[in-house]
């Protein structure tokens, strides 16, 4: 049993190693860089020679917490006038971080594109065409024409922002491209606005 004298050596070694414990870092709040909280559609009425008429109107979709669990976004109803032409611009922001995401979309024009779907475009109620100043098909600025004799006053406009898509995919030049998902990529925004057409 003499050899049990070695036991304390092992216990001391064990103790020494045991106290070499490590701690986790203190957590820090993370800036949510990817989140979108506000999407604003601005409508500027245009006359026959494309000059602005009157003051622009805005309709927004807001989700103050971004993509956290619990809150449901607030989506306003779009009110437009029969037979008028509009310049529609889209402003996307992250209000939590005070970030202008439209600028980022513009910077990465090759990877982003808006599509406009829903009954507003299928029921002969309105038509839309990309009109981005850069000439690239993004959808941050568009020309929108409301029919002078829409079949109904109520419709829906679904605004989809795709990221990382193949812009050369056949059909992807059409802002109303139904099968946008076939061009690949993923959805950053998918908001359905109710639309009311007034006289």
């Amino acid at each position: 049993m003499q050899n049990f004298r070695k036991l304390p050596v092992y216990l001391v070694a064990a103790f020494t190693l045991g106290i070499v414990s490590c701690e986790s870092d203190d957590p820090t709040p993370e800036n949510e860089g990817e989140v979108i909280t506000n999407v604003v559609l601005n409508f500027q009425e245009l006359d026959a020679s494309n000059n602005p008429v009157g003051t622009p109107v805005s309709f927004s979709a807001i989700d103050p917490e971004g993509i956290e669990v619990g809150a449901t976004p607030t989506i306003q109803t779009i009110n437009l006038k029969k037979g008028k032409n509009y310049r529609m611009t889209i402003a996307v922001t992250n209000s939590i971080e005070g970030e202008d995401i439209s600028a980022e979309i513009l910077e990465e024009a090759d990877e982003h594109q808006f599509f406009f779907l829903g009954t507003a475009f299928t029921g002969n109620i309105m038509t839309i065409a990309y009109n981005d100043p850069s000439g690239k098909l993004i959808g941050l600025q568009n020309r929108l024409a409301v029919s002078s004799s829409p079949g109904t006053n109520n419709a829906q406009m679904r605004v989809v922002l795709r990221h990382d898509l193949d812009k050369n995919f056949p059909g992807a030049t059409n802002p109303n491209f139904q099968n946008f998902e076939q061009a690949g990529g993923e959805t950053d925004l998918d908001i359905t606005f109710p639309v009311v057409i007034n006289n």
């Binding site: 414990s21 490590c22 701690e23 986790s24 870092d25 203190d26 957590p27 820090t28 993370e30 800036n31 949510e32 860089g33 990817e34 956290e68």
Partner: peptide, 20 residues
């Protein structure tokens, strides 16, 4: 004995917390 830390700067709220 274990310590888990989220390295800050991801721009995303961490999926799991820091823990010991």
């Amino acid at each position: 004995q274990q310590a888990n830390s989220n390295i800050p700067g991801t721009g995303v709220t961490p999926l799991i917390p820091n823990y010991e």
